[in-house]
Amino acid sequence: MKKVSCIFIVDDDPITVFGIKKMLKSVTNCDDVQIFQNGKEAFDALLERHESNKTIPDVIFLDINMPIMDGWDFLDELIALDLKEHIIINMITSSIDPLDHQKWSNFKDKCPYILNFKNKPIFKIEATDLGSMDMAS
């Protein structure tokens, strides 16, 4: 079992959230899993944690299409925050639009964190999605 201290799930689809939570159970026993309906809620929470020196999430599951603030806008804000901590961001989307993939590729280059792209459906969360140990591979 991989030990992860804090995980953020940012998705407005309850079924996907349910799925991610369920899959997480089998790979980690994280006590601090937070659910957000959109990017804004997630970012506000993150900012609050950062400012009050609380634990920053190690892993973020991020949907792209969300109201108010979508996944891309969230990423912009996050990059602008320039956090020193390591974060693994898993973008989870049902989109198979090549444009979305291209956008991810562009973000990956400028993002100081690990940025994964995962197409739905997902059936299993790999250990690599939660830790940086396989970064070199």
């Binding site: 689809d13 079924i15 299409n65 049902s94 639009d97 739905k120």
Partner: peptide
């Protein structure tokens, strides 16, 4: 077409995932 593929896909992805569970 994009909307159709995206929105229908998200539902089918959910079905797949849930059925797998």
């Amino acid at each position: 077409a994009h909307i159709v593929s995206h929105n229908l896909r998200s539902h089918s992805a959910n079905f797949s995932m849930l059925l797998e569970f």
